[in-house]
Design a protein around this nucleic acid. Sequence first.
DNA 1: CAGACCGTAACCTATAACGTAACGGGTGTC
DNA 2: GACACCCGTTACGTTATAGGTTACGGTCTG
Lengths: 95, 95
Amino acid sequence: MLMHNPPHPGEVLKELCIEPLGLTVTEAAKGLGVSRKTLSTILNGKSGISPEMAVRLSIAFNTSSESWLNQQSQYDLWQAEQHRKELHVTQLSAA
Amino acid sequence: MLMHNPPHPGEVLKELCIEPLGLTVTEAAKGLGVSRKTLSTILNGKSGISPEMAVRLSIAFNTSSESWLNQQSQYDLWQAEQHRKELHVTQLSAA
DNA sequence: CAGACCGTAACCTATAACGTAACGGGTGTC
DNA sequence: GACACCCGTTACGTTATAGGTTACGGTCTG
């Protein structure tokens, strides 16, 4: 359904929250209550945004947790859709 | 943000897809290309809907993969929000 | 009763999010 | 120049979970 590769949420987080506020990874991680490494791997696209992390981000940056987790879902889904043809699934619905 | 406990996606899957079509777990699992156990644990709320499973469901039942994964996200997020107060996070945004 | 089918439970594996600790690169300051 | 300090990243171990394989108890039907 999605037309093109959505950006990794960590990239968005960096560009929209961390950099504009001039925050370091260390400062932001401290505020979020996670380790520097946990935040670092997210910002570098090495790991995704967990539901709990989405809530943390919503508190720290006064945003909605939904938006963060939805971004992650869109990203994950696009990855999965790339292999749509490889999973042999048969139609089950009446339509 | 969400006001009340969203249903587990497996419950929705059972009520909206499996039961209306009179499918058994075995039949549906075969069509989806997964083991009976994998589908069974989802229907019983023991495991969630993965991105790949969302794509499988979208093919088998001619629906959108987004809707399935979003349901799962809403469910996971509600669980995480219940512990919002326990994660000590400090405000970082200017607002 | 024997066999076939159903759903679930037990066991194992792979992946991934997380913390701790260590590392390498800057930027000082004495 | 040597030391201290902060930064971001990497290495390693832990834990949680989606998934397959197999085995079990239940219900049919021949």
